[in-house]
Amino acid sequence: MSCSHCVVGKQYLGSPQGKTEVLGGVPCYVGTPTVEYDQKKALILLTDIFGVTFSNNKLLVDDFARKGYRTIAPDYLNGDPAPPYAWNNTEFNVVAWTQNHTPEVTRPLIDKGATSFAVTGYCLYAIDLACDQIVDVLIVAHPSQVVVPTTFETLAQKGKAPFLLEMGNEDVEIPVPQQEEIDGILGGGKYAPGYKRDCWPGCPHGFAVRGDMLNAEQFAGKAGSFINSIAWLELYF
């Protein structure tokens, strides 16, 4: 599925500290830690539909880099993110846009990169990478383009990456009953690599990257999901 909530949210002010680089022929926004870090590892950040030029996504890359992870946001949307007029435009046809950004188009651009990497995704396709066993650690906030239960049954059968799922209780893409269905597939030790789901009150789809920082619950959800992501990386990566 893909819904109007994929384009709704707040844009953040700030001065991105990373650089645009071409890696493996793919334009990327790269955040490099200012402290010593493991250069054999990289955190791949798969942006929301607004892509690598969107300030929120750049600032999120910078946040991970400040925690000691070389973080790379590849332009896996191939220079074709959701256009500016899509921002907070619930009439924008997200489904039509998505049809031009299927895994067949985006995956070749994602698959180029580090030999050991974790992935954190904020909407599209990150779970596919774990199903194909090409990612060491997986963190996903409010995914789109998934089917409950099928996507997660596939992950349970094929995945080897510890999986952290950050959700809001107002997410219309995967509402709470479906989140609990995912728990039934992966939780309680069923998914041996490791699984954890957090569900933040008052948080809609997109909160971890476009949440309203003037809303106390969304502020708590965005900050908390980032803290949990760092803890997951420290535990498994």
Rank of each mutant, 00 (worst) to 15 (best):
Q218E: 15
D198A: 08
G184L: 08
N56V: 06
G68N: 04
D111F: 06
S229V: 03
I230D: 07
M167E: 08
D75E: 11
Y12V: 01
V52R: 11
L13N: 15
G51M: 03
V147Y: 06
L138M: 06
V61N: 09
G221H: 05
V22Q: 14
N169W: 02
K41H: 13
E36R: 13
C3H: 15
N57K: 09
I49C: 10
G184P: 05
D136Y: 01
Y195L: 08
I72P: 06
P83K: 07
L164V: 07
D63V: 05
D48I: 01
L60M: 13
W232Q: 08
E217W: 03
L23V: 09
R66N: 15
F207Q: 07
G189M: 09
T32I: 12
K67Y: 04
V135S: 05
T98V: 03
V61A: 11
V172L: 12
Q11I: 12
I44P: 01
G168Y: 02
Q99W: 01
P149Y: 05
E91W: 00
M167C: 10
V176Q: 06
T154V: 14
G18V: 00
V176A: 06
S2I: 13
G159Q: 01
G188Q: 08
N57F: 09
L59V: 01
K222Q: 14
N169Q: 05
Q11E: 15
V95W: 02
P103Y: 03
V35M: 11
A231M: 08
F54H: 12
V105F: 15
L60G: 06
